[in-house]
Amino acid sequence: MTYTFHWEVPLREWPAFLWGALATLEMSGVACLLGLVVAVACALARLSKHRYLRGPATAYVEAIRNTPFIVQLFYVYFGLVTVGINLEAFTVAIITLTINCGAYCTEIIRAGIQSIHRGQSEAGLSLGMTYMQVFRYVILMPTLRVVWPPLASQFIATMLGSSVVSQISAEELTYAGMMLESRTFRTFEIFFFIAIIYFVMAQFFSILFSLTGKRVFRRAWGQL
């Protein structure tokens, strides 16, 4: 083995990686929030009685979930350029991440809403609750409790998946690594280091979401 490891290369450049990590977090965070809004709307659309709402929502979800993210990214990026809109790569990344995250979250929320037994809302109504009360106490809180862990997983998955936007030169963590790599050619050390950063971030948020969930949905956390 003629290769000698130069671990000081990535370590020396830690400010660049810090900025990259923050950019990744900013990008994923915005995408997840917007994606959540999209998801709630689409979940309700998928559950509605009207076919003109259900159809497009279902088509959207199935199209996104069955195609690779990188293809979606290229599609949006080149598509916008073709139509003449020239946006920053960072913005394109957020748009595509939002579209992607939104589709997956739609399924999660839809499943969560459907998992609440209809009998429970019937029970609520029989006890004299109004529709609003039934929605708030019998449907909303249990649904939030049920969807919290899979949503948290999806958010982390989106954060990890954001590494792909480096391919359209959006400035985030992986791209920072690629830039450094083209200067120093220390591919292995750089990306190993970056992988560790992603891992730490993923673990951190995983624990954060888990603890938050336990505090907010105190009692029946384990009964899913």
Binding site: M1, T2, Y3, I156, L160, G161, S163, V164, S166, T174, T187, F188, F191, F192, I194, A195, Y198, F199, A202, Q203, S206
Partner: peptide, 24 residues
């Protein structure tokens, strides 16, 4: 399982691909 589910697949491909050529 934690490692391979907690890191981006892109990174895994990079590292494995370049790592293998390093080992010779």
């Amino acid at each position: 399982v934690e490692v391979f589910r907690g890191t981006p697949l892109l990174m895994q491909i990079f590292i494995a691909y370049f790592g293998l050529s390093i080992i010779g």
